[in-house]
Computed example of a mutant assay.
Amino acid sequence: MRKTSAPLPTFIPLLIGITAISFSSIFVKWSSAPASVQGMYRLLFTAILMLPFLKPHWKELRALSIKNWLLLGTSGFFLALHFLLWMGSLKLTSVSSSTIILALEPVFIVIGAFFFYKEKTSAAAISGMVVAIAGAVLIGLGDIGVSRDNLLGDLLSVLGTLAVSVHMLIGQKMVARVPSFVYSFVVFLSAAVVFAVYNAAAGVSFTAYPGRDWGIFLLLAVVPTVFGHLLFNWLLQYVPASTISMSILGEPVGASLLAFLILGEAITLFQLAGGLLAIAGLIVFLNAGKFKSRPKSDIPVEPAHPAP
């Protein structure tokens, strides 16, 4: 079952994680490498960085059942699919348009959590979610793609958001069975393997990239992955996936601001107003979003297959 309380106030790791993942789109834009290569090395370098801390968990890793290995591998597959689609979308559309679509994640998570985990939320929390999503949509109103490439980028971001929602729902289930560190290590490594297979099959070069790109691969591993996704995986022990996904609504705000400061992408009045709305809705949700699960357990009787 999920643990009752984190060793520090939840908003602290949430704030760190949101800030860290906000840099992800900037790093992706900076690199000239294909999205599949960026994703592969991002996850591979993260797994390598985790290796020195794996020894205390070696016994737990070896004790994983075949069923758990399959679930972890599935989670890794959907994480890789998310990165492939979302990072690919950034090659076609703006940071604001791509990250704003990630605001759909709480909707997919809440729906999935209701069907698979029987989680419900209060009216106040739903109101906060609606306000935050409305604000997130407002951010991108002045930047909605109108060209064919931009529309394709928007579609890739939608599909990437669906993929990460599946990844998060599996993660919520798995961290109740295995330590979050073991979960993260196996998922990141399996996602890197998925990318490697994809790149090999597509004939994408593994090494033909300048030193600048290798530095960006490392930044992607350290900043948004270790201080973002790894931190969020750890938080799944204490809060539902729906709460974490709702908090990630802060990413469009942070990413749009960073894109303005670093990439020179303009912020419109719609985006500014939307950012304020998203933050207000997020505050309401985090204060009122107490999800209820079935009394006996957070984990349902095994569904056909739960949907990062």
Rank of each mutant, 00 (worst) to 15 (best):
L189P: 00
F188R: 02
G211A: 15
V197Y: 06
V226L: 15
Y238L: 03
N150E: 15
V194M: 05
A202P: 01
L141A: 02
R148L: 14
F232P: 00
S157A: 15
N199I: 13
L231H: 02
G228E: 14
G171R: 03
P240I: 09
S190N: 06
G203V: 13
G215T: 14
A202Q: 15
L138Q: 04
T207D: 05
I144L: 15
S147Y: 03
Y209H: 11
V158L: 14
A191L: 10
D154L: 08
S184N: 02
W234L: 10
V137Q: 04
W234C: 08
V158A: 07
G215A: 13
G211F: 13
W234K: 01
L219S: 14
G171Y: 03
R212S: 13
W214K: 12
G142N: 09
G203R: 11
Y183G: 00
R148P: 03
F185M: 09
F206L: 14
I139F: 11
Q172F: 02
P179T: 12
Q237K: 10
G142I: 11
V175Q: 01
L235Q: 09
V204C: 10
G140T: 12
G203S: 11
V166R: 05
D149L: 12
W214S: 08
V131C: 03
V137K: 00
D154F: 05
Y238N: 01
Y198C: 02
D149N: 12
S184E: 06
R177S: 02
V182Y: 05
T225G: 10
S190C: 06
H229C: 08
F188G: 01
G203K: 09
S180A: 13
F185Q: 09
M174W: 03
L138I: 09
V186H: 05
N233V: 06
F227C: 08
W234D: 04
L156T: 07
I170P: 04
V158T: 10
L219E: 00
P210H: 14
L155I: 15
S242H: 02
T243E: 07
P224Q: 04
V146M: 11
I244W: 05
